[in-house]
Amino acid sequence: MTLFRQVIEPGNPAVDPSRKFNLPLSPAVRGGDFVFLSAMAAIDPATGERAHGTMAAETRQILTNMGALLEAVGSSLANVVKVNVLIYSMLEYENMNAVYREFFPTDPPARTVCGVKLIGGHKVEIECVALA
């Protein structure tokens, strides 16, 4: 049995880090019933530049871009089943959580949050799996 696998091109190429930063990844890949997203850092959708800021600002930018990416493939934030949030310090957990809850008002996805060392000077990266 061969399952369907399709690389997803974002509607806005500025938010595609594989182009901007020459990274060997696809922003999203559809496989089976799901869309798997690469971890997203805060990127200015107008310029493609890194949008460094507070935990709240970076979280908001990422989830805004994530919603746009999912909608470009016919999915949406409401179809997200699992989220992994990687933050630079668990002391900032609540600053992430407060913004996060605005984007998932009801029946939020399953989620794991952990503190790790991130690249690119970012404070947070978010990845997800969504129903296609």
Binding site: G32, V81, E94, D107, P108, A110, T112, C114
Partner: peptide, 23 residues
């Protein structure tokens, strides 16, 4: 954990034949 500690997450989500659990 959402009710106990304010984590904004469901304990688990079932979709596409799989169950995804929160950490």
């Amino acid at each position: 954990l959402g009710r106990e500690y304010g984590h904004h997450q469901s304990p688990a989500i079932r979709a596409g034949g799989l169950i995804f659990c929160s950490g």
